[in-house]
Design a protein around this nucleic acid. Sequence first.
DNA 1: CTGTATCCATGATGATACTG
DNA 2: CAGTATCATCATGGATACAG
Lengths: 113, 113
Amino acid sequence: MDIEDLATDEKIKYVQDTLFVVSGKWKLPILIAISQGSERFRDIQRSVPPITTRVLSKELKDLEQNKLVRRTVYDTSPVVVEYTVSPYCKSLKPLVDEMIKWGVNHRKKVTES
Amino acid sequence: MDIEDLATDEKIKYVQDTLFVVSGKWKLPILIAISQGSERFRDIQRSVPPITTRVLSKELKDLEQNKLVRRTVYDTSPVVVEYTVSPYCKSLKPLVDEMIKWGVNHRKKVTES
DNA sequence: CTGTATCCATGATGATACTG
DNA sequence: CAGTATCATCATGGATACAG
């Protein structure tokens, strides 16, 4: 599919979808924390301060729903829950790289006198 | 500059910067409206419904501050104000294209059973 | 026409406590 | 440990009126 064929409205809609998935204060930091080895709820919370349990819980649910994070429950006692980033998560890389590049360049641009 | 050399924290910071500039319901639709020829405040408002004057005013200020939009006041009577997209605005294209691509793909992904 | 000011509803977030 | 529940707070956005 060639994105140039999309109508303007459609383009906007897809952009909004994408923004919705990665926007906010926490989504990317959480993904990074998990991918760097914090797989338990409590670990993630410690790695991404100062996030509260309430917010972390919600964010993890969003990420799971978007298939970027997988949640596995081990039926031990006490229960162990493990979060991992999905393979699909890698598909974000080109996008995130573009965001970094643009952000770097933009900082230069707006601080120019 | 190679973005791979950046520390994780720096990457996150730049991503957040970028998100801040383009996020929200209105920023992209406004840019598109202007670039498609709606150069007056009232025209833009009509092209991007149902935005209120209050919100449009604020969004335009943000965009101007980020140098994506230029505001020109003509000293006529009554005053005419013209908004145009800056040349710099074009630098968003690779990013926006990535967002569209990811959004298209993501929709397929999440609607998979 | 181009906004600003005011008031209000809503949702997001934080703090804290509590459950299994 | 892994969350949920509740309450307070705050930022955002909409509706409306109005000023230059």
